[in-house]
Amino acid sequence: MIEMQDVYKTYPNGVVALNGVNVRIKQGEFVYVVGPSGAGKSTLVKMIYREEKPTSGTIMINGVNLAKLRDSKVPLLRRHIGVVFQDFKLLPKLTVYENVAFALEVIEESPKVIRNKVMEVLELVGLKHKVRSYPDELSGGEQQRVSIARSIVNSPKIVIADEPTGNLDPETSWGIMELFEKINNRGTTIVMATHNREIVNTIRRRVIAMENGKIVRDEAKGEYGYEA
């Protein structure tokens, strides 16, 4: 469960990115965050994995207030949240397998567990046959699958995706969306900031629309609602 109450965020340069946000997302929901550029979508999702701290307000994740979470506890929070970006953020000198295993190695998981979990998620994203490839030997869609595999390899309760299809062509995007649906069907909460009108209007889920740092619309099975 994610619950935000009266969340304000002013960046050090004076930009007000969030201007009183109230939202509640239940475990297992699939939520799109839409809105024009600069509306505060990225800022909103960054609050969830504590990349940014709110200037005021409370953000409760499974009973923990992130506004008061000490810096030293942030790594533990991040182990329960997967994050996917537009630019994949893969390490170019590591293979597909190593990129995914990386997420477990750096939290000191045992080698046996790592092997099992990595092979399991690579199978889920359909890249079991490419474990030895390097990122630059993969298509954009395949790279994004690797990054998704990495985000879920530690079985997080929540996956945050900031424009995961932003760099992909429409065809490939549908495949990636199917993957997110599959992950959501296993009970994982998905919060996805996106500009992809077609996807939002086709795969109907809850839509939170933002403008100028405020939530202006919040509908179950909503529409994109802006001109592309």
Partner: peptide
């Protein structure tokens, strides 16, 4: 820095990094 960024993203402690 990308390696460090990812380590922090997936929850590695500062000591580990």
């Amino acid at each position: 820095r990308r390696e460090i960024e990812i380590m922090r993203l997936v929850g590695a402690t500062n000591g580990f990094i």
